[in-house]
Amino acid sequence: MNRKRIAHIMRERGISGVTRRGRKSLTRPAKRAVPAPDLIARDFTAPAPGMKLVGDITYIPTDEGWLYLAT
């Protein structure tokens, strides 16, 4: 089926597509903010377990709101 056929069927049955809103930035850095120092110099290999520990946070949109996942 091509695009026109799908559009025709959707119009016939009163179906419309859903357009998501644009994403907004969650964090805005301060104008005078100084970046944190890179203490591990992007070298994530370690000689033994527990020598280098790093963390991260991510935001996941769900039907009930934002889910914050931190590691």
Rank of each mutant, 00 (worst) to 15 (best):
L69F: 06
S25L: 13
L67T: 08
P35H: 02
T58R: 03
K31L: 09
Y59S: 11
L26N: 04
I60L: 12
A41C: 00
I40M: 11
M10P: 03
L69D: 14
M10K: 02
R42T: 15
L26F: 02
P37H: 03
D56R: 04
I6R: 07
R42H: 08
A48Q: 11
P49W: 00
T58P: 05
N2W: 03
G22S: 14
R28E: 08
A70V: 09
S16Q: 15
P47F: 00
I15H: 00
K52P: 13
T58H: 00
K4L: 11
L67H: 08
G14P: 01
A48S: 06
P37M: 01
P47R: 05
G65H: 00
L69K: 13
K24P: 02
V18S: 10
I40C: 10
K4N: 15
A30Y: 12
P47W: 03
T71M: 09
M10S: 00
T71L: 04
T19Q: 11
A7Y: 03
A30T: 10
P47A: 03
A46V: 06
A46H: 05
I40L: 13
S16D: 15
E12C: 06
T45G: 09
K4A: 15
G50P: 00
P29C: 01
A33S: 13
I15W: 12
K31Q: 09
L39H: 10
K31W: 15
G14Y: 06
E64N: 11
G50D: 12
R5V: 04
I60P: 07
D43W: 02
R21C: 13
D56C: 08
R23V: 02
A33H: 14
K24E: 11
R3F: 05
H8A: 10
